[in-house]
Design a protein around this nucleic acid. Structure first.
Lengths: 203, 203, 203, 203
DNA sequence: AATGAATGAGCTTTCATTCAT
DNA sequence: GATGAATGAAAGCTCATTCAT
């Protein structure tokens, strides 16, 4: 049985992520989560005594599962072991690779991005455990390029900012097809990477 | 009396915008709005029979007040009457100018960006009345540059996407100073504009 | 102007009667009455400081206008001046005549019959000012018939009861045509009167 | 414990019937019902998500419990197995018997009679599930008498109408003793039955 | 006299949370 | 461990009533 492969706690968390993503934390009832998770309402409170604790549960899951995937997993391979690859290839590989992951974890990211605005305890974790490692890894890529003299001098945060902004927009362009008819997922990413690299390449 | 300069309806809308921005639509009670607006709770329902209608009220206000300012106001002056100005000057002027406006209307934009995710009726208006005029104006700037041979050929949506993404990130970088220590508002925008222009400029 | 032929107070009372009849006292808002009466909501409270007072106003109107019509008007003519007419003719004439009036004042009667159940102050007036004169007039008809030896001896209240019961049912039979398909208004009343008269006639 | 013999749902329905009968549907608060039923207000809404649903619950209870008792239970015994009894005995037995039941279920009948006026969904059920079986059973009694040549020819609906009207009035005469001083319950019914039977008997 | 915006008490309804089973 | 009936505080909403104009 598929159901039994996950623990009750995981089923609840997973259900919460999906419904929070759809309706927002405050727009979701514990009843809905219980139904989706296939448990009784009371069971939720055995694992998460307050509804708020579900958000924390989600956040912890994100920190444990998602951040390593985005910030860590394979990063060395992509950035360091590829001396022979061009910056363009590296950047595009990286963006595609990470966007893939972002889209796999879209719901959880959506929930966190939304709820971080309203819950200061979550905000703290966000700015301490999630943003820094991700920002760090991207900053390093650009800093490295500058150090090696291939990129012009900018504050790395600027470049990371543009890249993340571009990544966000690429997701939106994909989700709302009307905005960029005709453009494929690949084209969007590649063109954005081109603009960014042209923008920072020395000459 | 300051209070009497605005209508009751406007005071309610304004209060709703501010609290919705802080706590989200579902996290806000009509009682809170009433207190902030300085009216009785029942008064809210004279103007907005359902709490939902406050959201529509906000959206209509945005469409009437904000969109023209961002998409329309002064656009001709900036883009057309400035033949003698460089693209860089134009783009930076435009970005600064619009970001100023976005920040003036930050709360209302924040509310709409958040709630558009959960309310399909709002989503419709958003994609019909708000996004198209704004996207149109920026698309045109880039299309014009391409037509005149100053910019390389990209799908305008790509460039608009990068610019908007950059604009969003510039706001975030400003709001969370830790992310870009040392960088001023001006520097952020100018550097981003530089990267973007370098990225698309022919040679 | 038709509107000006009635006083504001009368327009309000009339509107109240009609909406109370449709929706019941507690199901009706003063706003609805105001709209139907063509006045501002506040105006109602100039004439009827409490919503309850509207009910009293209606009751007083009924006592002044309706009761005399049902209990008094033309009664002498029907019952006394018609020595040459048969009991059957008299009874049928009377029933048709009064049912006509009841149906003309249907709304007001409906309101009183419904609200008398819930408002003890109205109940008092009902049992003091409305029921006695009406019951008196009918009782007297039967008592007279008994005294003259044409009717068997029953308690007059019994006969009045049957007659009123029959009258009520005749109205219902008319209103819900499914209950008595094919029967006309006249047939219903005449057959009911027949049964009643046969039931009480000596031999 | 008496309380545990009934389900929560039944206690709520019973409380609702009693208070609705006293104050009318719109005059009753869910709080009052909760107190009378001995449950929390929220509990009512577990069983009846809208206040309206309480009315439906009451109606369904009436259809299930009351209609069979009035229209069905013992009808065969009274009408058919009593060939040796006179029509008078049968009619009086029937009327006493049913009036007993009506008075046992007085509150629920009162509620339905009142609310059927204002709620069209209830009206539908009323005219489909409640009226027809009851009317049918009485109609048949009279039709049978006519067929056997003991009663004169009338439209059965007329006779049923008179009988029901008489039944209603007999209840009112009992409840408001002033209207028929001195008359006992039995006398009222017997005299009314007499009038009716005399009225329709052949010769 | 008449208006209708404003009020706030009180209503119906929701839902996180508890707890006996 | 799991259930789901029950809770009650608090939410959205209604509406009779007031009052400045």
């Amino acid at each position: 049985m598929d159901t039994k492969l996950e623990t009750t706690e995981e089923r609840i968390i997973q259900a919460a992520i999906e419904i929070f993503a759809q309706k927002g934390y405050n727009g979701t009832t514990t009843k809905e989560i219980a139904v989706k998770a296939g448990v009784a309402e009371g069971t939720i409170f055995r694992y998460f005594p307050k509804k708020q604790d579900l958000l924390h549960g989600i956040l912890y899951k994100a920190i444990e599962v998602m951040v390593p995937k985005i910030a860590g997993h394979g990063i060395v391979e992509i950035f360091d072991h590829n001396v022979e690859k061009s910056d363009r290839e590296i950047l595009i590989t990286f963006m595609k690779n990470r966007l893939e992951m972002i889209q796999q974890h879209f719901s959880i990211i959506k929930v966190i991005l939304n709820e971080v605005q309203y819950h200061s305890d979550i905000e703290d974790l966000w700015f301490q455990k999630i943003i820094p490692p991700i920002k760090g890894i991207i900053d390093r890529f650009f800093a490295e390029g500058m150090r090696k003299g291939r990129f012009r001098q900018y504050h790395p945060s600027i470049l990371t900012g543009i890249m993340v902004g571009a990544a966000i927009m690429s997701i939106l362009l994909q989700r709302y097809e009307d905005l960029a008819e005709g453009l494929t997922k690949e084209e969007i990413i590649e063109q954005m990477a081109d603009v960014l690299l042209n923008g920072i390449a020395k000459k």
